[in-house]
Design a protein around this nucleic acid. Sequence first.
DNA 1: GCTTGTTAGTTACAAAATCAACTATTATCC
DNA 2: GGATAATAGTTGATTTTGTAACTAACAAGC
Lengths: 150, 150
Amino acid sequence: MTKTKIPENDDFDLRNFLPFLLNQAAEQSSLEFQQIYKNRYGMLRTEWRVLFHLGTHGEMTAKQIGERALIHKTKVSRAVAKLAQRRYLTRTRDEADRRSEQLALTAAGQAVYRELRGIAERYDERMAAHFTKGEAALLRMMLRRLAGMD
Amino acid sequence: MTKTKIPENDDFDLRNFLPFLLNQAAEQSSLEFQQIYKNRYGMLRTEWRVLFHLGTHGEMTAKQIGERALIHKTKVSRAVAKLAQRRYLTRTRDEADRRSEQLALTAAGQAVYRELRGIAERYDERMAAHFTKGEAALLRMMLRRLAGMD
DNA sequence: GCTTGTTAGTTACAAAATCAACTATTATCC
DNA sequence: GGATAATAGTTGATTTTGTAACTAACAAGC
């Protein structure tokens, strides 16, 4: 029975492959954090991302959000539509350039943002607690570089 | 016009939030690496993951792959079906437990795996080149820990 | 001014992911 | 042994995403 054993030869290990590792770590943390905003606010990942951007930066256009967060414009468009429908944000046509709209959180949106921000901060601390302060800072720096955010 | 300015107060920055950073970095690298196997072998992300698992570990069941890679069983099932259809792997019913099947790469599957593994190694090196050897090793360690792989 | 090209954002359609229900098989417990 | 529960894997229905084409508004060249 010529059952050729697969060449274990190379020292390549999937579990050390950076794209794989990044994906696993991201998936793990996203899933965990998702429980919170999904079950509690019925929000999708893209939606809280948009909410967070508006929360931290104030008024922005859909385009600016998409650029910063690397989210495709159709996804942003749909997330904005849902958030507007839930009265978490308002759209005001920009009179200087009437193609775009300035988006801003309503009072309700800000309230949700502040709640989620608090949860996010605690969650982040819990993750960072796996490491020393220096390691955590280095990790953030490295991830920013890999994400092309530098 | 009571335009309440959003509290820029807290020093919370989305761009430092670990789940966000992980997601951005993972997305960035996955998209880039995907160009290669997608354009070249018409494979989906889940498919090369399954292929890689079989390539590095030899025979496995669908369940084992799903557990290791954090992929839902329906996704694994469909990926396995496609790889089988392309004759990259064979399924052999496990006589000890006839519910499950042992999956193994065919010669063709192994050939593709080896090619992709080479590409993956070079890609990984390029990513790691952003950092010193020590930093890169630390990064992998930290990601493994965050992914719960330790 | 008018044609041509861009850009912000939306929408329609196709591809993929998620969820629930199903089959076949094995394990448990009485 | 037989009923009940649990498990491996598949399939179909629903959601979500990605791709393309579209509308409306602006910009540039002439």
